[in-house]
Nucleic acid binder design. Structure first.
Ligand SMILES: [Zn+2]
Ligand SMILES: [Zn+2]
Ligand SMILES: [Zn+2]
Ligand SMILES: [Zn+2]
Lengths: 135, 135
DNA sequence: CTTATAAATGTTATATTATTACATAGTGTT
DNA sequence: AACACTATGTAATAATATAACATTTATAAG
């Protein structure tokens, strides 16, 4: 009873798993060098090891990069497995980041046509405001 | 016949003007150190001088930062004077960036409510795809 | 099992992007 | 003049990310 193709597609390498676990259990977005510091005890010693794992995890949709913060959070939206269409809200006071999972929003953006009639399946949207706690 | 308040609000300091002019006449987004290199002949010698001018220009809406590229473009959308609600399309091949000016889109996003009913007047949206030339 | 291929890792050095800290100078207002 | 505010100059350093090269591990095919 081996590993099925589907399982394998989602299986992570050692470094990827270590870094994903750290991000996934974090309550806030983590920066690359914060990650590095926290996984050094597990044998990951160099920035490049972190960045390579991050690149892969982003590529397969397990995590997303918050571009305006240079930080990474785990995806908690199963429909993001393809990972190319993301939306977040960011609190400007406490920096809490929440992934937005709105069928209406993703449908609107996926169907949006620019003035040349071009549609885009990939996008990243970051909303800024105050979270419940901070307002 | 002095400078009116409105004029003054929009008047740029020396460094701000030099850097805005460079960005404004560029056909592509410029990075901070590219800007630095190009304004050294005008006496701007240090990164901080560039970053300070960029911060101010972003704040007053004369330029926008393309977060996924760490680069800056001039605003060509007069309604962005307040500069907090921006949308761009980015070509993944040639890196051409175009500011999107769509009343429908900005209205949709400004009125979007997250699952807590929260609305956001500030946002940044980056669409990724292929420009006309590259597809 | 062997060979080939692709993916991941380890390591060092370096490039790129951005900020801290402190001193000085200009601008507008009262 | 006195004050507040904005902008500038300069040096040092912090934070973020990649290049280059050697090696190892996983996967697939023959
Ligand atoms: Zn997601
Ligand atoms: Zn908050
Ligand atoms: Zn604009
Ligand atoms: Zn293009």
């Amino acid at each position: 009873m081996g590993i099925s193709k589907i399982d394998k597609m989602h299986s992570l390498s050692k470094n990827q798993q270590i870094i994903f676990d750290l991000i996934d259990k974090s309550s806030e977005p983590l920066k690359a060098y914060t990650i590095l510091f926290n996984v050094q005890k597990k044998g990951i010693k160099a920035p490049l090891q972190v960045y390579r794992a991050l690149d892969k995890l982003v590529e397969i949709g397990k995590i997303h990069k918050i571009e305006s913060r240079n930080a990474f959070i785990a995806c908690h939206n199963s429909s993001c497995q393809v990972a190319k269409a993301t939306a977040f809200s960011i609190c400007e006071i406490c920096e809490k980041v929440t992934e937005i999972s709105s069928a209406g929003l993703s449908k609107y953006l996926a169907n949006f046509k620019d003035k040349d009639g071009m549609k885009y399946s990939k996008y990243n949207l970051e909303f800024f405001g105050l979270c419940k706690k901070c307002r």
